[in-house]
Lab assay of single mutants.
Amino acid sequence: MEQATVKWFNAEKGFGFIERENGDDVFVHFSAIQGDGFKSLDEGQAVTFDVEEGQRGPQAANVQKA
């Protein structure tokens, strides 16, 4: 698992990007966020996640709020 920071997340559209420590951004979809209830992330929030290869490149999976 990697630890990184949420760059931005649009709760209405259900997706955003996580900024990795190496500077690369990773796409995150609300369905990858672990937990119950409304799944959203806040800008600047610390998260841990795995990286999977998606249809359009790397994307976050198993996202957990740190």
Rank of each mutant, 00 (worst) to 15 (best):
M1L: 12
D25S: 11
M1I: 11
K13G: 04
A46L: 15
A4D: 02
Q45T: 09
F27N: 01
W8S: 03
G44T: 03
Q64N: 12
G37E: 07
E53A: 10
H29G: 03
V63Y: 00
E43A: 15
V28W: 01
A46Q: 12
A61I: 13
S31A: 06
N62D: 04
F30W: 15
E12P: 03
F15A: 02
T5Y: 14
E21L: 12
G37N: 06
D50G: 09
A32R: 00
F49P: 04
F38S: 06
A4H: 05
F49L: 07
F30K: 07
Q34S: 10
W8A: 02
G35H: 09
K7N: 05
N62W: 08
K7Y: 04
G37R: 04
Q55E: 13
K65M: 11
F38L: 09
L41N: 02
R20S: 06
G37C: 09
R56W: 15
A66P: 08
V63R: 00
G35T: 09
Q64R: 13
N10M: 04
F38I: 08
A60M: 00
N62C: 08
P58W: 10
Q59E: 08
V51Q: 05
R56M: 09
K39S: 06
T48Q: 08
K39Q: 09
G54S: 10
V47P: 01
G35W: 10
D50Q: 14
D36A: 11
W8I: 01
I18R: 00
G23D: 08
F38T: 08
A46G: 08
R56P: 07
E53C: 14
E12I: 13
V47W: 01
Q55M: 14
R56K: 12
A66V: 15
Q34P: 05
G35A: 09
R20G: 05
F15Q: 02
N22G: 11
A32K: 08
P58T: 09
G35R: 00
D25I: 12
Q34Y: 09
E53K: 10
W8H: 03
E43S: 15
V51E: 04
D24K: 14
K65G: 09
P58A: 08
K7F: 08
K65N: 10
K39L: 10
Q3R: 14
I33K: 00
V6F: 00
E43K: 15
K7Q: 01
P58L: 11
D42L: 15
V47I: 08
F15M: 05
D24C: 11
Q34D: 08
G16N: 02
G23L: 08
A4E: 04
F38M: 08
I18A: 00
A11P: 13
F15P: 00
N62Q: 05
Q59L: 05
D42S: 14
G14L: 02
G16M: 02
G44D: 04
I18G: 01
W8P: 04
A11M: 10
E43V: 15
G14W: 03
A60C: 05
V6T: 04
P58Y: 09
A46D: 08
F49H: 04
A32Y: 02
Q34L: 13
E52Y: 12
V51A: 04
A66R: 09
F9N: 04
E2N: 11
N22S: 11
D24R: 13
G54D: 05
H29Q: 03
A61K: 12
D42P: 07
K39R: 11
K7E: 04
A61F: 10
K65Y: 11
Q3Y: 15
V28F: 13
D36R: 09
N22W: 11
F9P: 05
V63W: 00
N10Q: 05
K7V: 05
N10F: 06
F17N: 02
Q45Y: 06
E2C: 14
D50N: 15
S40N: 07
L41I: 06
V28P: 04
E43W: 13
E21R: 09
D42C: 15
D50K: 14
Q55V: 13
E12S: 13
G23V: 02
A11G: 08
S40V: 11
G23S: 07
V51L: 11
D42Q: 15
G16K: 00
E52S: 10
N10K: 05
T48G: 04
S31V: 05
E43Q: 15
D24E: 13
Q55C: 15
V63C: 06
A46N: 10
A32N: 06
K7D: 02
G57A: 04
F38C: 11
G37K: 06
F27K: 02
K39D: 05
F27A: 00
F9T: 02
T48Y: 14
N62V: 04
F17G: 00
K7A: 04
N10G: 03
A66T: 13
G23Y: 07
S31G: 05
E2Y: 15
D50V: 15
Q3M: 13
G14H: 02
W8G: 02
A32E: 06
K13R: 11
E52N: 08
V63K: 00
A60K: 01
G37Q: 06
G16D: 04
M1Q: 14
T48R: 11
G57M: 03
V28G: 01
F38P: 10
T5F: 14
F38D: 07
I33W: 01
F27L: 02
V28K: 00
H29T: 00
G16A: 05
K65D: 10
E12Q: 14
M1G: 13
F30T: 06
Q45E: 13
I18Y: 00
F27P: 02
R20C: 08
Q34F: 11
A61W: 05
A46E: 10
E53Y: 15
Q34K: 12
A61P: 01
S40Y: 14
K39E: 06
Q34R: 10
T48F: 14
V28M: 06
R56S: 09
Q64P: 03
D50E: 14
N10L: 04
Q64W: 11
V47Y: 03
P58N: 07
G37S: 07
G35V: 09
V6K: 01
Q34T: 10
N62E: 04
R56Y: 14
F17W: 07
G44W: 05
T48W: 14
S31R: 07
R20T: 08
M1V: 12
I33A: 01
K13P: 02
E2M: 13
A11K: 15
Q64E: 09
A32Q: 08
Q34I: 15
D36V: 12
T48D: 06
Q3S: 12
R20L: 08
E2K: 10
F49Y: 09
G57I: 01
Q3L: 14
D24I: 12
G44I: 02
A4V: 03
E43H: 14
G57Q: 04
E19H: 13
A46Y: 13
D25K: 10
D50L: 13
V26P: 02
F49K: 01
A60L: 01
G14Y: 02
V63S: 02
V47K: 00
S31E: 04
E12T: 13
F27D: 01
K13L: 13
G16T: 01
R20M: 09
R56F: 14
K65P: 12
A66F: 13
A4I: 00
E19T: 15
N22D: 11
R56C: 14
T5S: 09
